[in-house]
Amino acid sequence: MTTAREWEFAGTRGAVTARIWSDGDPRYVAVLAHGYGEHLGRYDHVADALVRHGATVCGPDHMGHGRSAGERVLVEDFEDVVADLHTVVESARGDHPGLPVVLIGHSMGGLIAARYAQVHGDALTALVLSGPVLGRWFVTEELLPLDEMPDEPIDTATLSRDPAVGKAYTEDPLVWHGPFKKPTVRALDACIRRINEHGSLGALPVLHVHGDDDRLVPLDGTLIGIEAIRGADLTQRIYPGARHEVFNETNRDEVLAEVTAFVDRVLG
């Protein structure tokens, strides 16, 4: 397993911790954007597969997440998170000038990645969206009218059919297990709407992977958002029976092989 190296930079709202996985002479840069409440340390196996495929891999713990500074899971404007992600991308491009950049976002990270592609698409060669929060999300619709956020931990069985994934998630001290923050819910809703309104990603090659038994980010709501951003080169893979974290699913090797095959096709 490739070992990650950590570095820190001054983000828009405080210090951001980022990770880099690298081994040898890469042929592309893969940038990871993690989901809500988690951190990039949960993606070691994804990074390892990408490094073996020829990537140098990097990404931040978003503000208020993991090892980065800030009140836990508080995001008041996702444009700030996009700006922090851009710092990581630009650093990687500076270290590896001329290499293509592939951005991979999961769940809330898919929202961030899609918005990044709308704002900084010229920096990217391809985009991968895993169970992305796009289009319509029942969570924001249910929480927005409430004055107080319910403190109901997620059912970890919704993450993956592999029970070890839920156990590790529950025991991970860097994962947030408390309630949503109301400003974050407002910011999520605003970003979903902003992406829908901004529209197509044009010629940027996009791969969308999703489990058809995703109860955290249901496929039907996401498809509305995919239609809003779809351009000339969209590939979709929907996995029967798979739950929310397809990179942690029982068929994770199949999913990761789909990602690397997509990258090979794009890099051509």
Rank of each mutant, 00 (worst) to 15 (best):
residue 204 L to F: 08
residue 234 L to V: 14
residue 70 G to Q: 03
residue 196 N to V: 06
residue 42 R to C: 03
residue 113 A to Q: 02
residue 37 G to L: 12
residue 86 H to L: 07
residue 184 T to P: 01
residue 164 A to D: 10
residue 13 R to F: 04
residue 208 H to G: 11
residue 257 A to M: 13
residue 206 V to N: 00
residue 178 G to F: 12
residue 118 Q to L: 15
residue 12 T to G: 12
residue 82 V to K: 00
residue 266 V to N: 07
residue 10 A to I: 14
residue 89 V to N: 01
residue 218 P to E: 05
residue 220 D to C: 10
residue 74 L to E: 11
residue 184 T to R: 04
residue 220 D to R: 14
residue 216 L to H: 03
residue 235 T to G: 07
residue 119 V to P: 05
residue 227 E to I: 08
residue 245 E to F: 00
residue 254 E to F: 09
residue 232 A to T: 15
residue 42 R to Q: 06
residue 73 V to L: 04
residue 19 R to D: 01
residue 162 D to E: 09
residue 243 R to A: 06
residue 210 H to T: 08
residue 48 D to E: 14
residue 93 R to C: 02
residue 143 L to G: 00
residue 24 G to R: 05
residue 240 P to S: 13
residue 42 R to E: 02
residue 249 E to P: 03
residue 47 A to N: 03
residue 2 T to H: 09
residue 179 P to K: 15
residue 193 R to N: 14
residue 114 A to T: 08
residue 146 L to V: 03
residue 234 L to Q: 11
residue 150 P to T: 04
residue 196 N to I: 12
residue 55 A to Q: 02
residue 86 H to T: 12
residue 96 H to Y: 14
residue 186 R to A: 07
residue 39 H to R: 09
residue 103 L to A: 02
residue 76 E to T: 15
residue 214 D to S: 07
residue 146 L to E: 04
residue 53 H to C: 05
residue 27 R to A: 10
residue 1 M to V: 12
residue 5 R to F: 13
residue 178 G to Q: 11
residue 223 L to T: 14
residue 175 V to L: 10
residue 250 T to F: 09
residue 58 C to D: 00
residue 172 D to C: 13
residue 166 G to Y: 00
residue 178 G to T: 04
residue 19 R to Y: 03
residue 191 C to W: 06
residue 138 F to C: 13
residue 45 H to S: 03
residue 26 P to Y: 04
residue 40 L to F: 00
residue 174 L to V: 00
residue 196 N to A: 14
residue 51 V to Q: 01
residue 268 G to Q: 15
residue 168 A to K: 13
residue 71 E to S: 11
residue 106 H to N: 13
residue 65 H to Y: 03
residue 232 A to Q: 14
residue 109 G to I: 06
residue 37 G to D: 10
residue 94 G to S: 10
residue 137 W to A: 06
residue 73 V to F: 03
residue 132 P to A: 05
residue 57 V to N: 02
residue 219 L to D: 13
residue 151 D to I: 05
residue 115 R to D: 12
residue 176 W to F: 14
residue 246 V to H: 07
residue 63 M to Y: 08
residue 209 V to I: 13
residue 18 A to N: 00
residue 215 R to Q: 12
residue 106 H to A: 08
residue 204 L to N: 03
residue 160 S to L: 04
residue 68 S to Y: 01
residue 126 A to P: 01
residue 80 D to A: 08
residue 165 V to H: 05
residue 254 E to L: 15
residue 65 H to T: 03
residue 170 T to Q: 15
residue 85 L to E: 01
residue 96 H to T: 07
residue 197 E to V: 11
residue 16 V to Q: 00
residue 236 Q to E: 14
residue 95 D to Y: 10
residue 157 A to V: 12
residue 121 G to W: 01
residue 67 R to Y: 12
residue 34 H to K: 04
residue 5 R to Y: 05
residue 220 D to G: 13
residue 228 A to R: 13
residue 49 A to K: 06
